[in-house]
């Protein structure tokens, strides 16, 4: 671990000053960043802790949605009454991730910016285009059970490990950021992360000096919320595949469907093709399977993760079936 300067600004302005220094990184909970610093994967010269900045916590937006300060912990977010009631898929996603201790520390902004769990990314002795552009990808020919089946490239087959961000993508959440000089912008959760292409080292659309200040959720849309996470053990494991689903059925037909997938790609994967198949369709297993097939039509894998293509389809169908059963029972 390289020595670094630890800065604890008490306002967004001073934080943005600090982040302008060369090779500086924001730190939320530090549950991922600090681990990676110990492994020499992250080597910032300065770490800018956001905890003393007032990020506003929770409030209702003008559109009757929910505003969440970027420093809100995963525990607080998962247990917020409005999240439990109106954005249940988000609460379930958060509670399916990590451990209580980690959730107590991890932040909303930081969760979006988790790095991949790819073994080779975390091992500085092996080539990794994400960690060291141009060095190659050791995962392509190595053990790769946890790797991508959608949107990967010859340069990188890593997946994004977050559960929270998958639910945020399904819910059409928006991130609100700020840059030095006071420039603000709003980024859709579905647009935050990039596919790897030939620059897997560039993971998001954020600039290096851009601070996530808050996340907003739109007006609640009701429906049945399900976060189905399939993993290699029943707790404290990253998703092999996960599905964040909001489903509304009216008269046997699908009125609203929002579906995002985790564990399958370099980013939380909004399943637009499946949603298109399902919109207005009869809620039955045949249509669910057809939607899953459509979404995975371009799935691709040569390695250990190939089983995840079929697993993803089954997970989608299982989540849709369960949600439909609950909708029909309601």
């Amino acid at each position: 671990m390289k020595p670094f300067q630890f800065i604890r600004p008490d306002s967004a302005d001073t934080a943005l000053d600090a982040i302008s220094a060369e090779n500086a990184k924001f730190m939320g909970g530090g549950t991922n960043l600090v681990d990676l610093m110990k492994l020499q994967v992250e080597t910032p010269d300065s770490v800018v802790d956001i905890h003393r900045i007032d990020m506003g916590g929770f409030s209702e937006t003008e559109e009757s949605g929910l505003r969440i300060g970027a420093d809100v912990t995963n525990t607080a977010l998962a247990n917020h009454p409005k999240v439990r009631k109106d954005y249940r898929v988000l609460s379930e996603a958060l509670l399916s991730g990590a451990t209580a201790q980690l959730r107590n520390r991890a932040t909303t902004g930081g969760n979006f910016l988790q790095r991949t769990r790819c073994y080779y990314f975390m091992d500085t002795t092996r080539p990794c285009n994400k960690r060291e552009p141009g060095s190659g990808c050791a995962a392509l020919d190595g053990p790769s059970r946890i790797h991508a089946i959608l949107g990967a490239s010859d340069h990188c087959i890593a997946t994004h490990p977050s559960d929270m961000a998958v639910a945020m993508a399904a819910l059409d959440a928006q991130l609100h950021t700020r840059k030095p000089g006071g420039e603000n912008r709003t980024i859709a959760a579905t647009e935050l992360h990039r596919l790897p292409g030939d620059t897997p080292n560039i993971e998001t659309v954020l600039d290096s000096d851009e601070l996530i200040e808050s996340v907003t959720l739109p007006q609640p849309i009701g429906g049945t919320h399900i976060y189905r996470k399939v993993r290699d053990r029943s707790s404290y494991a990253f998703a092999l595949v996960s599905a964040a689903l909001v489903l509304k059925i009216h008269d046997g037909k699908i009125e609203t469907v929002r579906l995002a997938l985790g564990g399958v790609a370099h980013k939380p994967w909004r399943a637009a093709k499946a949603e298109k198949c399902l919109a207005g369709a009869e809620a039955n297993d045949e249509n669910f399977r057809a939607a899953a097939e459509a979404e995975l039509a371009d799935a691709n894998s040569k390695g250990d993760q190939t089983f995840k293509i079929e697993l993803t389809k089954r997970t989608i169908v299982a989540a849709l079936s369960e949600a439909a059963d609950r909708e029909n029972a309601a």
Binding site: R117, Y119, D123, G142, P143, I146, Y236, A237, F238
Partner: peptide
């Protein structure tokens, strides 16, 4: 070994 921690 590639999965060298208790998360993996």
């Amino acid at each position: 070994y590639v999965n060298r921690d208790l998360a993996e």
